[in-house]
Write a protein that binds this DNA or RNA. Structure first.
Length: 894
RNA sequence: GCCCGGGUGGUGGAAUGGCAGACACAAGGGUCUUAAAAACCCUGGCUCACAAGGCGUGCGGGUUCGAGUCCCGCCCCGGGCACCA
């Protein structure tokens, strides 16, 4: 055996002495094999116990395999699932592969390999690693979203959406990433850059498929109240949906028949509208701009479209715009107001046109001052407030000073009254608007589920009949995007050319594929019935297992994935395929894992991370050392920083090396104990050593006491009048059971591990007092109870170690199927209380009393304390005595 | 700018308005050993020679018998969103 580590060497040395050493390698290999052979984690659907469905977010199996960072979510959910099993639940804990999409495709292009072959290899490696860590997956339910038996049903769901009128094709300017050579959803554009490669995104017109998620905006918002998710995530979703209530108001255009409709949340300020603004791309621009202004306006529009998203969206950029030569008539007062085109109004929100009220909107105010447009106050907060002298738009408050609502306060109530009035007048109506936009599903990429549509010159876009599914993704020579904007599928005539399902005439298959979010929007349903070849899932089975009881994954999926999955669930519910409306009942997000990363100072004139930094981003002063640079840059110049653990930052620690060196149970324990589950943590090897040391210690103490184990301890009568020391240890044991159970239930793994450590410390002290003599009868009974309960308490966290202990106790089977211990409240109850004596809120003395001592006696003792007596001798008097029963006596003295 | 989180010893972190610093990591001291490792025991916020006392949970106020915890006003860090009418 190679000299792997200090730990390994020690174990070998101990082995030669034949001592009871913690041979984690043998233990872990043995139990992983036994679990496999017993199909321990395979769900039996006929099982009548209550169900528990624990799910990890669908991972893409990357070539690099998993790092210890990935264990931040897999291990805690595994602990929760194992705990649920021990509580008597029938646990469904599946795993599978989000194999379609750009990561796999980019990897295939880079390596020149067929993703169809590559994905299973990578998945096999993931599976091997997850087994190595001892995760309790039911591998018989493994799914792979890139296999036809899966994506056939992704296509089927597309057809259901299409049938419900929720899938449509629109020729819209899309976000185009020139580097990925693909279209991007709005959600995939981060600060005007591609979320994957950070290239500046351009606009490009393209026929695209969309899902009408906006039709579900209201339900997606209101149903957030029905699920147990972190408030922060709910808030993110609510903000993303961006509901705002207001009114649409129709403005006549002077000299034209048509109307210009605006959306406003403040119809009550209509009397202060002094101009209008439309988005430069708005169709009305071409129709109403006067001939003498058209050239200028079009030039402005072209410039706006060329301007990069980042620039156009940058916050405090000064307002620009051009007058269109046209005027609108304000419906509330007949005023003739000019119409401008300006890029601060967005085509994609509301109606793409606004009424501008400079007195009460900061953006309109800036624009008005710049172009010398009058400002009219609707609400006045003080008599000396004047539209002419204002330097910014008016603050909230005040009362209306013009119009039929003069005298009304600046309030939501007034807004409501005005909306009702507008409806009466027939010039406007109450309207709710959402920031949410429809979901762009089309990708002009190869590696995705083909969109099941056939284009017929006669019948347009015709859905592929359900019985013809799947539309199989054909093999292709080159995976590269064509760069023309079409998917590589467009170059395969055998795929493209087909017949129209309606008329049998020649048709062309849709060559766009679906984005990866489609696959991950329903996979949680498929796990309930993964091998169904006649339908996506059986309604009975899905209704029995869903919704997911506990969903665990990264907060980076707060908006897109979780919103899309909720949307599809609601669509399937409406179509009558399932009987629940929310897919994930309870959600938890794990924190990030950072690793100390060697880097170096950036040399002058060198831009950070190889990016062209023509933006206004701050220049980084630090660069990650590449492996080859570690040889050339002297160590004294290395600068360490914590960064996310990631292959691209060369700071990855794998579970393989940790399991080899310290063991899987130590790895599991280490990740759970260092910090709360949701927190970002910094990886350190010390933590692994500490975890391993603790498990070795538990093993040693436990094995030391094993010879005194009596399997029939429960039949023996509980000792009466056992010594204090024994009662104390038993009390700690039962308090620990309570604490561990409570912490596991609430995802507080760090304090759970602390409780186990505390108990172990007390057990160790107890063992040390035994010396070499034979324990007493009552001691043996206590020891037996401890020996049996400890492995069960630890089993969710350290299942291999626990199963080994369980077997050595002579127990049959696995801790996974054993019952989690229940605390005996009588044994856990404290016998004495510590009373704190305070003077004016400051701790002065402490004393102990037996439980049940009455308050008068406690107060008497408090006043008799040495320090208190001394304090009172100096002539001070007790004014008040505040007593917290069984806890505190606070003397207020002056 | 707006919206969420956070600021507690050398470090990670504990603490239903009631003993701040549980539990660990790192450190120091000791026992055992020819020696080392491992193991076991002890110490540990600051101030102070020690004790007593005083000061301590980002800063400033407040509520309370009592505030890390609640309220008001700031500062700093992390994350998200960003001209949304």
């Amino acid at each position: 055996m190679s000299d792997v580590s200090g730990i390994g060497r020690d174990n070998d040395a101990e082995a030669s002495e034949g001592a009871a050493r913690y041979d984690f390698r043998a233990i872990e290999a043995k139990w992983q094999q036994k679990w496999d052979e017993a199909n321990l984690f395979t769900v039996d659907l006929k099982d009548s116990r209550p169900k528990f469905y624990g799910l990890d977010m669908f991972p893409y199996p990357s070539g690099a395999g998993i790092s210890v960072g990935h264990c931040r979510n897999y291990v805690p959910l595994d602990v929760a699932c194992r705990y649920k099993s021990m509580q008597g639940y029938n646990v469904l804990h599946p795993m599978g592969w989000d194999a379609f999409g750009q990561p796999a495709e980019n990897e295939a292009i880079k390596r020149g390999r067929n993703p169809k072959e590559m994905v299973p290899e990578y998945a096999a490696n993931y599976k091997r690693q997850l087994k190595l860590v001892g995760i309790s997956y039911d591998w018989s339910r493994e799914i792979n979203s890139s296999l036809p038996e899966y994506y056939r049903w992704t296509q089927w769901i597309f057809l259901q959406l299409h049938k419900s009128g929720l899938a449509y094709r629109a020729n819209t300017p899309i976000n185009w990433c020139p580097s990925c050579k693909t279209g991007l959803a709005n959600e995939e554009v981060v600060n005007g850059r591609c979320w994957r490669c950070a290239t500046v995104v351009e606009k490009r017109p393209m026929p695209q498929w969309f899902f009408k998620i906006t039709a579900y905006a209201d339900r997606l918002l209101s149903d957030l109240e029905t699920i147990e998710w972190p408030d922060s995530i709910k808030m993110l979703q609510a903000n993303w949906i961006g509901k705002s209530e207001g009114a649409e108001v129709d403005f006549a255009i002077d000299g034209h028949d048509q109307k210009l409709t605006v959306f406003t949340t403040r119809p009550d300020t209509l009397w202060g509208a002094t101009f209008m603004v439309v988005a430069p791309e708005h169709a009305v621009v071409q129709e109403i701009t006067t001939a003498d202004r058209l050239a200028e306006v079009n030039e402005y529009r072209d410039k706006a479209q060329r301007t990069s998203e980042i620039e156009r969206q940058s916050a405090d950029r000064s307002k620009t715009g051009v007058f269109m030569g046209a005027y609108a008539i304000n419906p509330v007062n007949g005023a003739k107001i000019p119409i401008y085109a300006a890029d601060y109004v967005l085509m994609g929100y509301g109606t793409g046109a606004i009424m501008a009220v400079p007195a009460h909107d900061q953006r309109d105010f800036e624009f008005a001052r710049k172009y010398d447009i009058p400002v009219v106050l609707v609400y006045q907060t003080s008599a000396d407030q004047s539209a002419d002298t204002m330097t910014e738009s008016a603050a909230a408050g005040g009362n209306a000073v013009i119009g039929p609502f003069a005298g009304e306060p600046n309030s939501k109530d007034t807004v409501k009254k005005v909306v009702a009035w507008l409806e009466e007048q027939g010039t406007g109506r109450g309207v709710t608007n959402f920031r949410l936009r429809d979901w762009l599903i089309s990708r002009q990429r190869y590696w995705g589920a083909p969109i099941p549509i056939i284009h017929c010159p006669e019948h347009g876009a015709v859905p592929v009949p359900e019985q013809d599914l799947p539309v199989v993704l054909p093999d292709v020579e080159r995976y590269q995007p064509t760069g023309t904007g079409e998917s590589p599928l467009a170059g395969i005539p055998e795929f493209v050319n087909t017949v129209c399902p309606v008329c049998g005439g020649p048709g062309r298959r849709e060559t766009d594929t679906m984005g990866g979010f489609a696959c991950s929007s329903w996979y949680f349903l498929r796990y309930a019935d993964p091998h169904n070849s006649t339908e996506a899932f059986s309604r009975d089975i899905v209704d029995r297992w869903l919704p997911v009881d506990l969903y665990v994954g990264g907060a980076e999926h707060a908006v897109m994935h979780l919103l899309y999955a909720r949307f599809w669930t609601k669509v399937l519910y409406d179509a009558g395929f399932i009987s629940f409306q929310e897919p994930f009942k309870r959600l938890r997000n794990q924190g990030m894992l950072l690793a100390l990363t060697p880097g170096r100072k950036v040399v002058a004139e060198e831009t950070a991370d190889g990016e062209e930094s023509d933006s206004d981003e701050p220049i980084e002063d630090w660069k990650v050392l590449k492996p080859e640079e570690k040889l050339t840059v002297p160590k004294e110049e290395w600068v360490y920083r914590y960064t996310k653990m990631s292959k691209s930052l060369y700071n990855v620690v794998t579970p393989d090396e940790m399991a080899e060196q310290f063991g899987a149970d130590s790895l599991r324990l280490c990740g759970l104990s260092s910090a709360p589950f949701e927190e970002t943590v910094q990886w350190s090897d010390n933590g692994m050593e500490g975890a391993h040391r603790f498990l070795s210690r538990v093993w040693r103490i436990w094995a030391d006491l094993l010879p005194f184990y009596n399997a029939g301890w429960k039949e023996e009568p509980a000792p009466v009048g056992a010594p204090d020391q024994e009662r104390a240890l038993r009390r700690k044991l039962h308090q620990t059971i309570q604490k561990v159970a409570d912490d596991l239930e609430n995802f507080r793994f760090n304090t759970c591990v602390s409780a186990l450590r505390e108990f172990t410390n007390e057990l160790s002290a107890f063992r040390n007092t035994l010396g070499t003599s034979e324990p007493s009868v009552s001691q043996k009974r206590l020891i037996s109870e401890v020996l049996e309960i400890l492995p069960l308490l630890m089993a969710p966290i350290t299942p291999h170690l626990s199963d080994e202990m369980w077997e050595r106790l002579g127990k049959e089977g696995f801790t996974y199927l054993a019952t989690f211990p229940t605390a005996d409240p009588a044994a856990a109850a404290e016998e004495s209380l510590t009373i704190i004596v305070q003077v004016n809120g400051k701790v002065r003395e402490k004393f102990t009393v037996p439980v049940g001592t009455d308050q008068a006696e406690i107060e008497k003792q408090a006043l008799a304390c040495e320090k208190i007596v001394r304090e009172l001798e100096s002539g001070k008097q007790v004014r008040t005595v505040i007593t917290v029963p069984n806890k505190i006596v606070n003397l207020v003295i002056s």
